[in-house]
Design a protein around this nucleic acid. Structure first.
Lengths: 215, 215
DNA sequence: GTCTATAGACCGATAGAC
DNA sequence: GTCTATCGGTCTATAGAC
């Protein structure tokens, strides 16, 4: 349909999409910069302590320009969550399909913990109700969360079926436990103790998560 | 020394301590009410979303009266943490001394999770630096934390020594992992799913914590 | 009559929103 | 760049105990 349209309208409209696309690219680029800044600030200080002024200053734009892109602080946070969910989808798609489900799950947990240790994991307070309401009304967020959860959920069921994961545990509990590693305070605690490398910490937490504190 | 003083001064001063003690008791009772309200609000909304006006309203006193007892919002939070640490000490002291160290640890984890599910576990954001600085300057908090950590730390080392806990894990990691159950979002998630009782949830998280997701 | 504690108005700063 | 709401923190007039 698009090709028939351009062949009919000729050169004048052939240039127009390029121009619009360029403008859209600029807009998109700025939006990306905003969301990345929000992502970083959410990881560093959390939602409540992050101010919209900070975000604008970090991006280097006026606060008013921010509100052209996102109507509220809550929407900024939602955009950051959508971004990290998109990154998660890329990771999931890139994992070797023939690996054991339990190893897929471990890879996901490792990725989330490395992201947190790198200061790139935005974490939102589950207590803020206005934020929760906003997220639950955000289609992009819900869609992304559902897709990622379905993908991981498939591995959980497969791992329980082949006996590598405790089948007595509700799959939802396992999913939540995996997700919780994204905001596990143990990582920050161990990092601040300063006596271990990030990779050591990640491996220890993976062990405690899948094999428990017991030996 | 107090008895020799009263025997010397006679009846007139014998009444005075009673009066002072009554006044002090009233003051103490109100302080307890304040700290309990702070504890509940911290558990419900967290530090940032809790307002001093709310605390005063909950207790039923004026905000200025609050500031007669505690000089700042941070001190209110610290008092709530001291309170929960005191409750923890009572629990630790009441556990059967002859039980296996691993069972002592499980009992502690169960207690923390039940407290969280009951909405009585105050949790502070680790990101708020002014709050952290205030806590680190609070002797009562540091003392309480140290005592509780020493007590639990002894069990961790004993459990590692008798092989019921993985000896390859740094004791500090184990301690942090235990403490983290106090703010484990899995509990709230599972509770909000509404299909399981609190005790079921607690037992599942205990299993995943000590035995891992793996079977 | 004095003195303390209280209640509720008040202030300055700051953050979100436009 | 402005506006408004809110929040942490303070001030003052008053009520009640001794």
């Amino acid at each position: 349909m698009a090709s028939s349209l351009s062949s009919h309208a000729g050169a004048s409209t052939a240039a127009a999409p390029v121009k619009v696309s360029f403008k859209a690219q600029m807009l998109q680029a700025r939006e990306d910069a905003i969301v990345e800044a929000v992502n970083r600030l959410l990881a560093e200080k959390g939602f409540d302590l992050m101010t919209v002024d900070e975000v604008a200053a970090e991006v280097g734009i006026a606060k008013a320009s921010l509100y052209k892109h996102f109507p509220s602080k809550e929407d900024l946070a939602a955009a950051a969550m959508v971004r990290v969910l998109a990154r998660a989808k890329v990771l999931l798609a890139g994992l070797p399909a023939d690996a054991a489900p339990i190893d897929q799950l471990k890879a996901v947990v490792r990725w989330m913990m490395r992201l947190q240790l790198a200061g790139e994991m935005p974490s939102l307070p589950s207590q803020n109700s206005s934020l929760r309401a906003n997220l639950m009304a955000n289609r992009a967020y819900l869609d992304g969360l559902l897709q990622v959860s379905d993908h991981i959920g498939g591995w959980i069921e497969a791992a329980q079926a082949n006996g590598s994961l405790n089948p007595a545990l509700p799959p939802l509990l396992v999913l939540y436990t995996v997700y919780s590693r994204a905001c596990d305070p143990v990582l920050e605690f161990m990092k601040s103790s300063g006596t271990h490398s990030d990779e050591e910490i990640v491996e220890w937490v993976v062990v405690t998560c899948f094999d428990g504190l017991r030996q």
